[in-house]
Design a protein around this nucleic acid. Sequence first.
RNA 1: GCGGAAGUGGCGAAAUUGGUAUACGCGCUGGAUUUAGGUUCCAGUGCCGAAAGGCGUGAGAGUUCGAGUCUCUCCUUCCGCACCA
Length: 901
Amino acid sequence: MADYQFQDIERKWQHFWENERTFRVPKDTDTSKSKYYVLDMFPYPSGVGLHVGHPLGYIATDIVARYKRMKGFNVLHPMGFDAFGLPAEQFAVEHGVHPRVTTENNIENMLRQLKSLGLSYDWDRKLATTDVDYYKWTQWIFLQLFNSWYDRETNRARPIAELQEKLEEEDDGWASMSAADRESVLSQYRLAFLTEVPVNWCPALGTVLANEEVTNDGRSERGNHPVFQRPLKQWMLRITEYGDRLIADLDGVDWPEPVKLMQRNWVGRSEGANVQFQVDGEDASIQVFTTRPDTLFGATYMVLAPEHPLVDMLTTPEQREAVTRYCEEAEAKTDLDRGADSRVKTGVFTGAFVINPVNDSRLPIWVADYVLMGYGTGAIMAVPAQDDRDWAFAEVYDLPIIRTVQPPEGFDGKAYTGEGPAINSGFLDGLGVAEAKTAMIQWLQEHGHGEGTVTYKLRDWLFSRQRYWGEPFPILHREDGSVRAVDEADLPVALPPMTDFKPTASDDPDAAPQPPLARADESWLKVEIDGVRYQRELNTMPQWAGSCWYYLRFIDNQNDSCFVDPKREAYWMGEKGVDLYIGGVEHAVLHLLYARFWHKVLFDLGHVSTKEPFGRLFNQGYIQAYAYRDARGIAVEATEVVDQDGRPAMEVQDQPGRQFFYQGAAVTQEYGKMGKSLKNAVSPDEIIASYGCDTLRLYEMYIGPLEASKPWNTRDIVGVHRFLRRVWRNFVDAETDELLLSDEEPSDDQQRLLHRTTERVSADMERLSFNTAIAALIECLAEWVSLERIPRALAEPFVLLLAPLAPHMAEELWQRMGHNASLAYTAWPEAQAQWLVDEAITLAVQVNGKVRGTFSVPADAEKDAIIAAAREVENVARHLESATVHREIYVPGRLVNIVAK
RNA sequence: GCGGAAGUGGCGAAAUUGGUAUACGCGCUGGAUUUAGGUUCCAGUGCCGAAAGGCGUGAGAGUUCGAGUCUCUCCUUCCGCACCA
């Protein structure tokens, strides 16, 4: 009965770790040791729980955490829950339960699932963004933003009080201003400010959304509802001030290049110039932004966005009807329609002209929807010769085209956007693009027609939502409409108890946002301080707020006097912040951009010690699975699909020539991300029940590289399960339950195998290549299966190498080997150099680059002897007959190549 | 359209710097043990060929003594952005 009893073993060690608090890191830990902070992107506690795709990253970080502990690091490995947000609120509305109740239930279930995976989190540091003790500090950070401004001279955020002092000193009427006027001046500087701007309004969700939460076809990322642009007074965060640093500081972090690229593109920094064009015959000018000031001589017309404020004033009576109709049509189009047929250019002439400042030519002003009001100045100078879109437009409306950059010989395209000398450009002629840009910017500045500037795609972050289940703003409104912050001492502003927290949804785009908090009790809504009456801010923060700083709170989650103790922060964040942050690529822009922004503000204000929060980022792939749809295209339960021979699809889905059926009807096979919608989710609970969680951990790491998306295939699990059984059988006698070790000295060959395996596994741990680490252990064990008893000197290091991957079995074997303590902090085996060199090496011999044989030589053989031996290899000698050897190449330890003709 | 990542056996995948392509696992084939079963054990398994040998990393060129790896052109798939001036 002493077979591999994984249920008993796993239950035993999970209890042991919990009872002994094996992975607890004391608040005041030994800071003389090196630290390693390894973090997961914390989950949203959803009602359906985890499927096997979710833990992929958690297993990986757990392996790293366990490995680093054994390497002697102080390891911080915490977990928490990102629990504010729409789904909990929607579920609560549907079931009439308070979101706090559903959130807590979901957390409970997810905790159980996480613990059943044997993850070595320090659960004493668990947190949820919905904890009042947590969001108190989220509100506190908001106050830091509210009470700061961005000083462009020193390029950092500073306390708003310092701006007040500065304004007092400069005294441009500051002293004579009313308090309300002063506040409105300051609000133009605060990093968190209330303003009326066009925002993304989603009536179906009853809330406004950030740009990052709207898909590029103009719908809400959550729920896929239509989103409308509407001017509304909302809270914004001045993230645009950080555009440069959000790009520049990417150079200092170890992140996947695609993620850095996505962030750079999202910020969208463009260097160029603003140019003023005088309107012909009017006392008005139009400013355009261009990245190609060098092409100003080639400008042949100007285009305004339909929403541009000057359109109405400029349009001549003859053109008015056409322009008005065009603008109305453009307004009715969604962004989707405007972008859909982007190759077809439309527009209408306003009848007005501007003067090109460089050559006084008259340029017609057009209105066209290919120019967007939301970027640059909403107006462009059109240079068809050097811009594809302008060329296309000029072709449609027969506008002139003047080349100002000489295309290379043989160029047969239309617009030329590449390098070349300037032509037809007066004082720029002959200059390259870069010099011409510089020269033109200088000319514009000297003559007062413009200046060099930088434009960003990034917009300020719309930060308020009309929801109940979020952090309340620590803000009070006076009756005159001005605002003030809640005193720090009065934090937290707790969510008021409410029974009707339903958002006011509507399908009318003109409906007004109605924050649920407006229905809170008067006792919460109305506040009186020093005889002044206030009403609380009714909006709540977006879901991203809590995840912007949770990695800091993990460092010191119990602290109730500050958001994180500075000494502890300095130790755990160290030089480069979080040492390893693993999560899905879906957060490449949103969460990671927002968190970096908050971190930089905290850095500027002296609250954290690193420029960047996450020194190293790693994106794990997705677990995918086969899925099946019936004739109507509806997904059917993948587990109930069979092939033409009646075999379950799960067993034969990767074999060619299969047809699949669900309840007798033919279905089509596809392949996609595991989840509820494709009905192909596999629960970790059932895999753990039949194979154990050590097997599940091993399997998820073994199917492929961590960063790759890869298919789940329940059939393949037996492979790693067999490996674990083989380990067990080789160490424990099935009859007697006795440990099968010998005290013999290992042979030299055995030593070499052990140390080579140690070397491979260690290197693979460092580069997160767990699939090859497991392969190395399988190969190593395969050499020992014939041994009655494995020498203890081999068995112990082997168990330690296995420990991060399959910790329950490793702990059990370690204990049976006579060790009283957990192996969690036992030193990782070191590969010794003496055992990494072989006595004899096998080399390949090539003739003219083709392998013709192999031979063995002593490891210390000389080059000449090796080449001589190579030429004697039977097959090689045959190929060299009647040929003259021209060259002999010896690659040490690898091969000999003989070049002969 | 622009940008990025990736294409290796029937399947998942290996192959630090250019140096013996297909490690390891699944599946498959054969055998062993067992009353039986397999979540047991052993052996074989890229393709063509009886063999010798030849051919093989999406396609085609190139550089090199030597290319899965480097360069160029093209094809396919996935991801991101989408008139960003």
